[in-house]
Design a binder for these strands. Structure first.
Lengths: 132, 132
DNA sequence: CGGTATCCTCCTCGATACTG
DNA sequence: CAGTATCGAGGAGGATACCG
């Protein structure tokens, strides 16, 4: 109970077997499109397929479908098909998806806050490479 | 100023031009190996190349070098070559790397806490697919 | 020890075309 | 509208061999 001077970190590590599984899960959620779709649904609430597509112009329809399906499978969001013509499909975050979105919030804020620092670091690095 | 009932979120959104850059940056840092190396260096402090390699047995030497270089370029860590024989190279997080590591902390905790929920969601989803 | 360099193989991802 | 199906290019990433 004495000599640990760094209580700033609450991100302590865990059972190695669990860690492998966690690492695996990280590999799937730490994906650019997943993060972006989480953000959009968190921000705008329930959205239809085309609404999401318009909100993320860079994504191909294929990737959008694929990512939404995987997120549905992982319990991040619900997909509701309304039996009308023309078809209408709503996507909404589940509570699980919302908690993940909140967890990623810190990363978004970090990226926003440190954009310039990273840019600067790159320039310095590249300059050093040329010099050598 | 009235009817917005959800002040729980402090992850508000931003200038679209900035957002594109942020999204880009996210694409580079939201990488499995980057997250894992950040964790290891945060947890264990300065490490040599082979120490890291041993700590992450699944990574190939190529990916390890590549990821470390990119992180160095982005200002996440420093690479110190000691001119001795045999060669010795130390890797250590910079303050910037440490803040990112902390930002990812929430995601690690989420993954650890929700592993079973995700597993369960997958089983349910897969069962539903077979049924249909 | 701490890398590069090279080759080779998946597998992601985009583009296009078609459907209920 | 909201997909599925198919094709094809390109890059990620592993295996191996060699170097300072």
């Amino acid at each position: 109970m004495a000599a640990r001077p760094a209580p700033e970190k609450n991100c302590e590590h865990i059972d190695p077997r669990v860690e492998a599984l966690v690492t695996d899960l990280i590999g799937r959620v730490a994906d650019k499109w997943t993060m972006i779709l989480l953000e959009i649904l968190e921000e705008k609430g329930t959205q239809r397929f085309t609404q999401i597509a318009r909100a993320v112009p860079d994504i191909s329809q294929k990737m959008l479908t694929q990512t939404l399906r995987r997120m549905e499978r992982d319990g991040m969001l619900t997909r509701t098909v309304h039996p009308v013509v023309p078809p209408r499909v709503d996507y909404a975050l589940t509570p699980l998806g919302e908690t993940l979105s909140e967890a990623f919030c810190g990363v978004w804020m970090w990226a926003e806050a440190n954009l310039e620092r990273v840019e600067h670091a790159r320039e310095e690095f590249d300059a050093r490479q040329v010099a050598v």
